[in-house]
Write a protein that binds this DNA or RNA. Sequence first.
RNA 1: GGCCCGGUAGUUCAAUGGAUAGAAUAGGAGUUUCCUAAACUCUAGAUACAAGUUCGAUUCUUGUCCGGGCUACCA
Length: 599
Amino acid sequence: MTLAAQIRLAAEDALKHLFPETEIPAGTITVNQTKPEFKGDYTIVLFPFLKLLRTKPDVLGNQLGNYFLEKTDLFTEFQIVSGFLNLTVRDNYWSSFLQNHFNDPHFGEKPKHDHRVMVEYSSPNTNKPLHFGHLRNIFLGYAVGEILKANGQQVVKANLVNDRGIHICKSMIAWQRYANGATPESLNTKGDHLVGDYYVKFNDAYKAEVSGLVSEGMDETVAEKEAPIMKEAQEMLRKWEANDPETKKLWETMNGWVYEGFHISYQRLGVDFDKWYYESDTYLLGKTIVEEGLRKGVLFKKEDGSVWIDLTDEGLDQKLLLRADGTSVYITQDLGTAKLKFNDYKLNQSLYVIGDEQNYHMQVLKLILKKLGEPCADGIYHLSYGMVELPTGRMKSREGTVVDADDMMDEMIALAKEQTEQAGKTEGFTQEELDKLYETIGMGALKFYLLRVDPKKKMIFDPKESIDLHGFTATFIQYAHARICSILRKEGCPLKPDSTKFQSLVLSQPLAPAEKMLALIIEQYPSILETAAQEYNPSAMCNYSFQLAQQFNSFYDEHSISKAENEEKKQFRLLLIIMTASVLRHAMNLCGIRLPEKM
RNA sequence: GGCCCGGUAGUUCAAUGGAUAGAAUAGGAGUUUCCUAAACUCUAGAUACAAGUUCGAUUCUUGUCCGGGCUACCA
C-alpha cells in the first residue's frame, strides 16, 4: 500500500476513535504531498471535518497528530498551519521502503485478475499509408493496453482493418488505368505508399474529369456523379460485392502490398496486435441484430422498407440502420462487430481508440446496443482523442499537407543523429550501437511528444519547431537513465543487483531534502500507474517520469554517489538511483519508450 | 439551429474542490580542477468574461464571448 493510502487509513482510524459518534463520509479525507514551502512530507486537509465535528483546526490537528505519533510508527513530528496538518515521515520509512522494493522490476504492477478488455486501435484504411495523425492513435492504444496489463487486466490488442469499400476501389481503378503493371518491387517502393499514390492519382483524374464536364456546361453536382472514373469505381465496388474473381484478385494483391508496408511501419513503431479483424469479413454482420430489434419492437420500419431507431428521447435524432433495399450502413456492421468481439473473448470491456470526431457515432452505437438489450453495451468505451493539427489547421490529403508517418520517423531519427553528433557524444560506440541509439532517441522523442498531452485535447504540431530534444521530452528522461547506468557501471553495481547486499542498511544520519524527495516520488509510482489505468491516460506516465528524472538531476547535482560522505550514505544513494532507473524504465516501457544505458 | 469538446505565462502543456496556480520552451543572469552541461541554479511572466454554490473554485452550476468537432440512405 502506498504511503498516502496508509495515511488515509490512519486518519480514518483516528477519527473513528476520537469521534466514535460521528460518521465520516467516504472521500472527505484528503491527503496531499506537502507544498515545498512548508515543513513536512504529507498533508491532511482539516477543513472538511470542522463543521462536522464542531471543532477548531488547531484542536483537531493536535488530536490527530498526537494520535498518529502514539499509534503509528510513520511520523516523527507534525505542524498545523491554517487548517492543514503537515506530517513529517520518519527517515527510516524511506530506507526500508527502498530495501524492500529496489530489486523488484515489477514494482507498481498489480496481480493478474480476470478482467478481460479489448483495446482496438490503429484500424487503418488500406488505401493509403499511415500519417502523423494515426501515430497518436497507435501510441495511445498501445500504451493504454500495456498500462492496463500492468494493472493486472487481461488485454487483447486488436486491429480492425478497413479493407473494403469505395476508397479501395478508387486506388484499384487508378492503378489499372495508370500503373502499367507496376508493383512495389518494380518501383522499389513500400506497398502502402504505392497504393496511396494511386489513390491520389484517382482524385487528380476525378477532379480533371469533373472540371472538364463543368466546362462543357454540366452542373457541378451532376458532374461529380457522372465523371466516368467515379462510375468505374462504383462499378468495381459492385463487382467486388458480387465476388467477381478478377476484381477480388486485384483487391487481394493490392491489399497485400499495403499490409506488407503496414507491417514494416508497425514493427518500427514497436507496436503489436493480438487479433486482426477485417471489415471484409465483418461488414455483413449486424443484420440479424437489426431483425431481432424489429421483432422486439425497439426498431421500426418506414414505408419504403428502411429500418430506423428513434433516439429522440435521448436528445438525439432518428438513425437509419438498414437502407430501403435491405443493405446495411456503417453503424449496422459496427453493431455486429461489437457483439462479435465480446463473443470471441468473453470480454468485460471493449475500448475503441477513435478520434473525437466520432463521438456522436460511438454514443449512438452504445445507445442502440443498450436499447436492444445487448449485454455488451455497458462494456463499450470510446477512448476519444483530439486531432493532431498543423499550425495552418487540419491535415488534408487533398491539399497535400499530410505528414507521412514513415517520413516522420526518418526525420526524428535523423534529428537524433544530428544532435548526438553535435554534442560530440559518439565516442566509444560502434556504428551499430549508434544506429540503435539514434532510433531509441528519435522514436522515444516522437512517442513522448504524442503521449505527453491529455488524450482528449487536440494538439498542434509544428513540424519545424515542435520536436525538441530538450525540456519535457523523452530525451531528458533517457539522459537521466543513462547517467544512472554510468554511475552504476563505475561502482561495479549491476542494474538488478543482489538484494542481500543492502539488507543491513540502517540510517544514523538525517536524509537531505533532495534524497528524501527522490524517495518520496518513487514511492508514489504505484498510485500513478493505477490512476493512468483508471483514466486511460498515458500522459500521467509521461508527467510522472519527467518529474522523477528532474528530481534525480537535482539530487545528482547536489550529492555525489561515488564520493558520498560515508558508506551508509553511499549505500542509501545507490539504492535510490537503482530504483529511480528501474521505475523510469518501467514507466517508459509501458509507453513503448526505451531507455538507453549509455548516450 | 441542436448536441459534444476545449479556452491557464509570448508559445506548448500541468494542477482527486485545498495553502502563494506548477513545468517546459523562448527572454535575462549564473554554474564545468568533482559520478555524462542532452544537465543544474536564480530571475521575469498566465486561470477569456460575469454571476452563483462553498470555509475555500482553474476545477462544480448558469449565462456571454472565442475556437474546434459532429449533426449523410459515405465509410
